[in-house]
């Protein structure tokens, strides 16, 4: 009862906020869309290429979300926690998920904007998959672990096999948390897309031919720091667990 009231309240608040933004933007002549920037013809051309590239990522995104959920269920339900493979995969996922999305954004920037001629569909897809999959897998894993062990035991005791337990009990119980995780992943993607578009516009207007960008090297430096920090944190975690 109380929970549903809270949900309605938050829906109302969000609707109000969206209505306000829409009203504000229309009354001011859509400042988000027409930011006073105008493209010359060639720039507009390459902008539509960028748009197309981004739209082509939608099926990739949906696919990788679906795949991530499947992976998380496989890891948690079928690959036992004691298995050494589980440990290795879980650690890799943790490291990838703990890298700030900004760094993936820079990666995306490199492939989508700065290397737009060279960047292939594959590299674009890889950027988005890297952005979405680790965080979705991790949140789904947490959702699966959050399902009460007693529910599983009750189902097993009635004679349900592993598959039935997952389909009938674990998935329905974990579903709201899984959706919340997907929302987080999508918001990451949206933020990065916004970043790519903004930097693209900025680049088209300020960058003269002959200017060089050193984003790739700085990305590598930042990525290695992120990797180092997550390795250290997982090492510390293991050490504190032992004592």
């Amino acid at each position: 009862m109380k929970r549903s009231v809270l949900i309605y309240q938050s829906i109302a608040l969000i609707t109000l906020a969206v209505a306000f933004i829409l009203f504000w933007s229309f009354s001011k002549g859509t400042p988000f869309v027409e930011s006073g920037l105008t493209f010359d013809e060639t720039a507009a051309d390459s902008y539509s290429v960028l748009q197309e590239n981004l739209y082509r990522m939608v099926p990739i995104l949906l696919g990788s979300i679906f795949f991530s959920i499947a992976i998380a269920f496989y890891l948690e339900e079928w690959l036992a926690e004691t298995s050494w493979i589980y440990g290795i995969i879980a650690q890799q996922i943790t490291i990838l998920a703990s890298i700030p999305s900004l760094l993936y954004g820079l990666l995306g920037l490199y492939f989508f904007v700065l290397q737009s001629e060279k960047g292939s569909f594959f590299t674009h897809a890889l950027t988005f998959v890297l952005l979405v999959m680790p965080i979705t897998i991790q949140s789904t894993q947490k959702a699966i672990r959050g399902v009460d062990i007693s529910v599983r035991e009750a189902a097993f005791a009635l004679g349900a096999n592993r598959w039935r337990v997952v389909v009938d009990h674990v998935f329905p119980n974990a579903f709201p948390t899984i959706v919340a995780g997907i929302c987080t992943a999508i918001s990451r993607v949206l933020a990065i897309t916004a970043l790519i578009i903004i930097v693209y516009i900025w680049k088209e207007h300020t960058l003269q031919s002959g200017d060089t960008f050193n984003i790739p090297s700085s990305v590598i430096v930042l990525l290695s720091f992120a990797l180092l920090s997550s390795v250290i944190s997982s090492f510390l975690e293991k050490k504190t667990n032992l004592t």
Binding site: S150, V151, A154, G159, R164, N173
Partner: peptide, 21 residues
């Protein structure tokens, strides 16, 4: 012998009542 086959013939009532949703 699969565990699920056994637990179909041997039922169990737990300490805490666990109705499904």
């Amino acid at each position: 012998l699969k565990a699920s086959k056994i637990s179909r013939q041997i039922g169990m009532i737990f300490q805490k009542p666990i109705p499904f949703h």
